[in-house]
Simulated assay, not measured.
Amino acid sequence: MMRDLNLEAAIWNLFTSPEFFEDAARECEKTMEWFGTLAVARRVANFGRNNQIYDTFKRRASEFRKGAELAKLGDYEFIWRMSDAVRGDARGFLEQALHSWMTEAEEHEFTNVRMSRILAYSSQITRGLNNAMTAADSYFDPDPECPERSDDDDGFPGGEIVEVFEGYANWFEANFWRLPTPLPDYKIDPSIVCRTGDEVPRTGVWYPNTGIDMHSLTFAVKGLRMPPAYRVTKTADEMHAEGIWGNAQTVAVPTTWHPIVASTEKKNINHELWAKAGESCPRAGVWQAGDITATERTYCAGDTMGNLGSAYGLTVWRWLKFH
């Protein structure tokens, strides 16, 4: 099946956007209000214990919003960690004797609809950010107790992100998650390069030099290390055919990445681009040293940025323009 770069990039951008985190907060609030109204109407005798469920939804809504605000500032650590913790909430809720005061239909509504929607948000946030947060460390410093984990793609192997998006749209309703209409026209920007392990110069969705046949796009966060690409060696369907239930089998591949940007924003892309001496040049063009010498030099993408012996330590360069 032909891969649709615009569709995949749009979904990656959706799952990792502050707006998506805000939507998750609203989903928690709607469930909190539904649960509280129902419990009060039923005059639940042990609402003190059930109030813990109500308070958890309230806290998670606040945390999703905090994560959204931090993400706007370039910090994704908080939202990544808290979204993964939501699975534990669901396990705890299922241990409660909700059937003692909910009807069968209400318990189904709570567990299979409302909680499922919240988990749909939290799990896609986690998967969208996993590789940005941990994949480079796992690749360069594998866990000695489980070194094979460094080959596992904890994001969306191959083109799986489309299957996930469409699967939830069909499970809930067509407008559960919305993409822009028409889809943005995304382009690969070859003028910016970042190799696996290098410091990421720009937060966003990136395209691997391996191509995306049996590989996926990735989301990377500025200031963290660029992850490897992951080649699918056995799809989830192939695993299932062998009686193995789980994710696709993958192997980590070091590569060079380029950002994917909407064509409407390319002319304005990241003019405040910086690189340190000794790093690979992330974008071809004219660069200016960030000290009183204001020296300008032309670099090609991939060149090593020069060190002018700045009094402030290593020279820091600022991208000015294309040559």
Rank of each mutant, 00 (worst) to 15 (best):
N6I: 01
A9N: 11
A10Q: 06
I11H: 06
W12Q: 01
F20N: 08
R26T: 04
R26Q: 14
R42M: 04
A45P: 05
G48W: 12
I53M: 13
K58L: 13
R60S: 09
S62H: 10
S62N: 10
Y76C: 03
I79V: 15
I79H: 10
I79Q: 11
A85S: 15
V86S: 06
G88N: 11
D89G: 00
R91L: 10
L94H: 14
A97F: 13
L98A: 07
W101G: 02
M102V: 04
E104P: 00
H108S: 01
T111I: 10
R114P: 00
Y121M: 02
I125T: 02
R127C: 01
L129F: 15
N131E: 15
A132K: 06
A135F: 03
P142R: 09
P147I: 06
R149I: 05
S150D: 05
S150Q: 15
G155M: 06
G159W: 04
V162E: 09
V162T: 10
E163V: 08
E163Y: 14
V164G: 01
V164P: 00
Y168P: 00
A169D: 00
W171C: 00
A174V: 04
W177L: 12
R178I: 09
P184M: 05
D189N: 13
V193M: 07
R195D: 07
P201T: 08
W206Y: 08
N209E: 15
T210P: 05
G211Y: 11
D213H: 14
T218V: 12
A220Q: 12
L224V: 01
R225W: 12
T233D: 14
T235I: 08
A236I: 03
H240I: 05
E242C: 12
I244L: 10
W245F: 14
N247E: 06
T255W: 08
W257V: 01
S263F: 04
T264Y: 12
K266S: 10
K266D: 04
K267R: 13
I269W: 03
E272H: 14
L273E: 07
A275T: 12
A277Y: 06
A277F: 08
A284K: 13
Q288G: 01
A289H: 12
A289M: 10
E296S: 11
R297F: 06
Y299G: 00
M305I: 08
A311F: 14
R318C: 02
K321V: 02
